[in-house]
Design a protein around this nucleic acid. Sequence first.
RNA 1: GGAGACGUGGCAGAGUGGUUGAAUGCGCGCGACUCGAAAUCGUGUAUACAGGCAACUGUAUCAAGGGUUCAAAUCCCUUCGUCUCCGCCA
Length: 426
Amino acid sequence: MLDIKFIRENPDAVKNACKVKGFPDNTDEILALDTRVRELKTLTQTKTAEKNKITREIPTATDKAPLIAASKTIGEEIANELTELSEKEAQLNDLLHRVPQIPSPDAPIGPDESANVEIRRVGEPKKFDFTPRAQWDLLDMNDWWAPEKIAQICGTRTYCLKGEAAELQLAIETYVIKKLISKGFTFIECPAITKPQTIFDAGHFMGSDLSVMNNDVFMLTDTDRCLAGTAEIILNSLHSGEILAENALPIKYAGFSPCFRKEAGAAGRDTRGLARFHQFNKVEQYIYCKPEQSDEMHEHLLNNLCEIMEDLELPYRVIANSTGDMGFNKVKMNDVEAWVPSENAYKELGSCSSIGTFQARRTNTRYRENATGEVKYVATLNNTGIAVPRALVPILENHQNADGSVNIPKKLQPLMDGRTKIGGKH
RNA sequence: GGAGACGUGGCAGAGUGGUUGAAUGCGCGCGACUCGAAAUCGUGUAUACAGGCAACUGUAUCAAGGGUUCAAAUCCCUUCGUCUCCGCCA
């Protein structure tokens, strides 16, 4: 959420953000409610001060009865005004949770992904001297999965990897975690079960009614819990309510967890292969920093993912996502997409996002500035480290050989007992 | 799942209805003493919101929410969390 003071002082910026991101504009209603809430606060607080004054005189008064009566009367007046105040505050709170984050002026303006801009392309799509196979054919011929059986027993959009492909997935996860640790990230094994409030505080959902997430989040029946869609949720709340020391920033976390998504809006998409499941594993990069460090940290996070693409020897490109595509809570967003030969296209493997202080306001995560002693909200950022099994799609396809074997990227070979390739007729 | 104990400021720890936002100690900031430091002494040390140009004033906050009362950290209820014992268990 945004600071109400910012909205008061910059209504046009807020209105513009609603417009370019494609969210309803409630700015005028917010400002009207804000004015009324402040009036009521001033009124009730003045009366409460009066009442407190009377109350404090009671213990030492010789004739207590009139004071008690006066206090009671004024108390009833306050109660009435408080009713209106809490109604107005609830309305205001709901609307404030519907105001999108202001996008960066650098972000391309547009309604959806069609307005995204490619900003960088690294590596050339590989030329094969044979017809490259699609991921599912490679998986089939090497007996690396069991899609029909798993769909029967676990339902659609679940997967299992078998044998060397499962080993490879584990190696990729381990590789990325180790790499991030070497870059100063603290590795955190995150729970996947959480409370809905925690998901809400990550700022992907609007309004004050938590049930809006039921469409996207797996709720656990007869409990107060649900399944987190990403470790970002947990990492985002890790310092909720705290005032961090300025010296402690930036804080860098590499979270690892299974991720659960209903994929309600993706019916029919990516139904074949390893691209989209209800459950997958993800290494997540997450940073808390001072707002003025945010751009630098964004580059750091983005660069880490690009390095990982290069370590995995994948041709990739970096996208600047448009205002309409970046989502509710983001300042800017860069997707990283890897080349997938069978689709003759770049496909998303990761998403680097600057959130500004938007999440920190929801979680109440702040830091104290050394020089001034001032308490300020931190900025937060997140990026994918690696998401599997999706990352296996370009890895299998780009590194395949004519016999159906798959070369292991050099950096992964030590984690695969030195093997240089897997599968094929060997 | 059963039984019990508990949740106070950065930390430790007083406080069981009336100027208690909260004693005391530690920590930390500033100042004095010192060549410097230690020790010592003095002094300060939460957050949010509202009002004010400001100095400042007011309101709220003792896990969270609700209730009783003229008045709640203190009494009652609910929730959340922590600890101990038992049960179960990777």
